[in-house]
Each structure stands twice: as C-alpha cells, then as structure tokens.
Design a protein around this nucleic acid. Structure first.
Lengths: 69, 69
DNA sequence: TGGATATGGAAAGTAAACTTTACATAGAGG
DNA sequence: CCTCTATGTAAAGTTTACTTTCCATATCCA
C-alpha cells in the first residue's frame, strides 16, 4: 500500500505535528504512514481523506497481491 | 462506521463463507463486519471494494464524531 | 423427526495499528 | 559554533483487527 501523504501535506504547507493534532493522532503515526511503516486504520484513512478533500482511493494506492493484510 | 456489506453480499447471492474464501479471511471476520463488531483494516476494505466493484466510500459510511478510532 | 446448511457470537490467542517516551540527525539562522 | 525546528526511528506498552475453535439457533427438506 502506497500513499501520497507526504506530498499532499507539503502542498498544504503544514508540519507532521500540525496534521497529527488536527487528526488527533501522534506525530509518529503520521511519520510512520508517510514512510510506509504501517497502514492506517480505515477510520484514520477517512479522516485524512476528509482533511485533504480527496477520496481514500486518491490518497492510498492499493497494490494487489503485495501480500499484506 | 456503518456499512452495506450484508445487503451487497445478499444482492450477489453468496454466503458469508464464500465471500470470506474469496477475500482470504475467516467467515467470522465477514460476520463481524456485517454486524458491526469491528471495522475492517484498510486492506480488507480495498479488497471488499474491488469485489463489489464499488468505492470504499460507497460501502463504508464514516460517521464523524462517533468517537471511534 | 432428523440431519444438513447458514448465520450469530463468545473465548482465547496472534498480529498490526497506535501511543508515549526517548534520542539522533539535518538544516536554518543567529 | 550554537540552538531551534522538523523529521526519522526505535522500544515498550495498549488496543483493535483477525484467527481458530466451539457452541447455539433457525430454516430447509427428505
């Protein structure tokens, strides 16, 4: 699962810490998502989509059979 | 978070067990999602969306401030 | 009445998302 | 050079998604 979070966040000109505060998660969670250490929960994916005014599919790119859960 | 899984599955005329096999999860996972016991991972949400040929947003309804994670 | 099928759901365990704390590094500007 | 800010990342702990096993119930049909 890839995502465009770092790019989108930088386009908005905000820090990881600010985005984290808005979404009510930790800065480390944002950093971990941007760097692909894990996938977001579906609830966090919805929050991110709402914040960036995009669909989940426009932010997260699901790659078939990159056999992750 | 609400979803239309039971309705969509029944429209397709398949059993929980069959859907589970296709998505490579357990029958209990499908049952638990249909009955709202927990939310899917984003990967499973993508698999379901692909199977039903819908967007995640068309299957799962995110309700703001129903303070779940 | 009986067995077979489909679903609900609980219990206990594993895996993955997320938190808090902590430290390290790189760049900007004094 | 020093310090401040933004980010990377790791370790340990909690919560939640998911598994396997098990039992209960309802319906269907021979």
């Amino acid at each position: 699962m890839k995502n465009r979070l770092e790019q989108l966040r930088k386009e908005r000109g905000i820090k990881q810490e600010e985005l984290a505060a808005i979404l009510e998660v930790s800065r480390q969670t944002i950093g971990s998502l941007e760097n692909g250490r894990y996938n977001p929960s579906i609830v966090l994916a919805f929050k991110l989509a709402k914040f960036f005014n995009l669909s989940i599919e426009e932010i997260f790119i699901y790659e078939e059979d990159s056999d992750e859960k």
